[in-house]
């Protein structure tokens, strides 16, 4: 397997956390190539492709990718395009990561819009795939059908769900609920063969195990994702505050900890390592800006898995088949 290109300079904790995650992945036998400055310290025995520029978090995505051709993000995407790497991962500027992947790897033929798929934790079940969680603020109804097709492949290949249940995120379960976009998308999804469309779902359904892939526009998806993340963080913080509020509570909390910690791991975004950009000609993992070494390690593992199962090729085949049948 070709190495996975890791943007050493992307994210709030770069390069230390990125290097630590990459080194841990290499210890597991995953081939890694770092993308960063020539004089980057702490690289160890890892291979490095030099890049002299960094796209900062605040920079405009499209123009920074056009102007900073020797940035770590563009060089990472180029490495995949040129067959020097099998996948890329970055915790840097999300928009620029998407733009780099789109412009250097290119769109899969027939894909109207690449979309970001994020794993939403579901206690006691496989995660739910939320697509699009931020790439396309405005969408057309037929793009949502493609998101469903790509999300189906991802759910199947990443989480082993044989016939993923597709739900359209709306404000009620009935077909007539939602705005004109949702109503049109509902019709299209209902008539699309090859999809296990179960109808509209609501935000509260995403973490209950009743749906495997939730399809929506990137604006709504991002709001939903950030709401879930914020809520989980607040609940966990409140729990810990309650545990620490008295010595008696702390004793009870200590007793409960063996049961609570595995649950915490399910909810921790670092467990999943990042989202994936679907619809481009390569595997691109977009990690959280605040990624820890553990998040980077898990993102790299995800990238490796997606390369090994041939997810890009499977999406290409799914889109081609759907295009032919329409």
């Amino acid at each position: 397997m070709l190495p996975i290109a890791v943007d050493a300079m992307g994210g709030d904790n770069a390069p230390q956390a990125i290097l630590a995650g990459a080194l841990q992945a290499a210890e597991l036998g995953i081939p890694i190539v770092l993308i960063g400055p020539n004089d980057l310290a702490g690289v160890g025995s890892l291979q490095l492709i030099a890049a002299t520029e960094v796209i900062e978090m605040h920079e405009d995505a499209a123009s920074s990718v056009r102007r900073k051709k020797d940035s770590t993000l563009v060089v990472a995407a180029n490495a995949v395009r040129e067959g020097k790497a099998s996948a890329m991962i970055s915790a840097g500027n999300t928009g620029a990561t998407m733009a780099s992947a789109l412009l250097r790897m290119g769109r899969i033929s027939g894909v109207q819009r690449p979309a970001i798929a994020t794993a939403i934790p579901v206690p006691g079940s496989t995660p739910c795939v939320l697509i699009d969680s931020g790439a396309n603020a405005e969408v057309q109804a037929d793009w949502l059908v493609q998101f469903a097709q790509m999300g189906t492949v991802y759910s199947r290949r990443r989480f082993g769900v044989e016939a993923p249940r597709i739900g359209l995120l709306s404000i009620g379960e009935e077909p007539g609920k939602g705005d004109s976009l949702r109503k049109e998308a509902y019709e299209l999804l209902s008539n699309e063969s090859g999809l296990n469309f179960i109808g509209n779902v609501e935000g509260r359904d995403m973490m209950t195990g009743v749906v495997d892939v939730v399809v929506t526009d990137g604006f709504t998806g991002n709001v939903a994702l950030k709401t879930i993340e914020g809520t989980i963080k607040t609940v966990v913080k409140s729990l810990f505050a309650a545990f620490a509020s008295s010595p008696e509570n702390q004793v009870h909390a200590d007793a409960l900890m063996p049961a609570l910690l595995p649950m915490y791991e399910v909810f921790d975004p670092d467990t999943y390592g990042g989202a994936i950009l679907l619809g481009v000609n390569g595997v691109c993992i977009i990690s959280h800006g605040s990624s820890s070494a553990r998040a980077i390690l898990n993102g790299i593992k995800c990238a490796q898995e997606m390369v090994e199962v041939g997810m890009v090729e499977e999406i290409r085949a799914a889109i081609a088949a759907a295009t032919l049948s329409n």
Partner: peptide, 12 residues
């Protein structure tokens, strides 16, 4: 807009 971003990048 996305097509035009791709187009301008490729032209460059």
């Amino acid at each position: 807009s996305l097509h035009l971003v791709e187009f301008s990048y490729e032209i460059e």
